[in-house]
Amino acid sequence: MIELQGVTKSYNGSTKAVDNLQLTIPRGEIFGFLGPNGAGKTTTIKMITGITRPDRGTVLINGKDILTDTVAAKRQFGFVPDSPDLFLRLRGLEYVNFMADMYEVPHSLRKERIEVLAKRFDMIDALTDPIQSYSHGMRQKIIIMGVLIHEPEVWIMDEPLTGLDPKSSYTLKEMMREHADSGRTVLFSTHVLEVAEKLCDRVAIINKGVLQFCGTFREMQEHFQSDESLERLFLEMTDHE
């Protein structure tokens, strides 16, 4: 579960990137985080994951405050950043093992998990190669593997489907569904509205740092009293200024 209470972040003291955000993402849900470019999605995710400190407000992950109970809160989630160009000089397996060490995964468990993940993402033959030699999609997959190695309770993913081939994309979506259905939490941001419409239990739409809407797709249609697609509703919500 992720709880944001009155989270605010401004740059240069004037421009508000995120303004008084109030959001609760309960267990058992895939939660989509939508918004146009520069709306404040990534800033919000950075505040949830402890990369950026909010000016005001609190962020709780499974009840643990990211600002005061930092390490315990960070153990609750796995985070896939928007760019997979990380740890390029390490081999795939070295990176995954590094992440396992960071999250203190026992030796007996990590081998099995790496094998399962590598099989699902079709990465077994690439594990001993440097990440630098990977394609964009492969980098994305190895980053996801490193994040899931400690079987985090909360998944936080910034544009996780970008660059994945259809099979891997399908696998990841399937895994997200399994994870939520087992009573745990998935938060992900995306620009692809079809994906959000099909995959998410609930969505939040943010624009210019302000939460425009939070609820199910059905609720959104009711709210606007229309049968239109998420795309039309989204455009309507974010273009009106």
């Binding site: 081999r91 397996l93 070295e94 093992n97 396992a100 060490d101 995964v105 026992p106 030796h107 990590r110 081998k111 790496i114 077994i124 033959d125 690439a126 594990l127 001993t128 190669d129 440097p130 630098q132 030699s133 990977y134």
Partner: peptide
């Protein structure tokens, strides 16, 4: 910026060695 890749599966021992805690 190209980097060589072997695309070779790690042997059981290699895999074991590389996943030490």
């Amino acid at each position: 910026s190209e980097t060589a890749a072997k695309r070779q599966r790690a042997s059981a021992e290699e895999f074991d060695r590389m996943t030490g805690k």
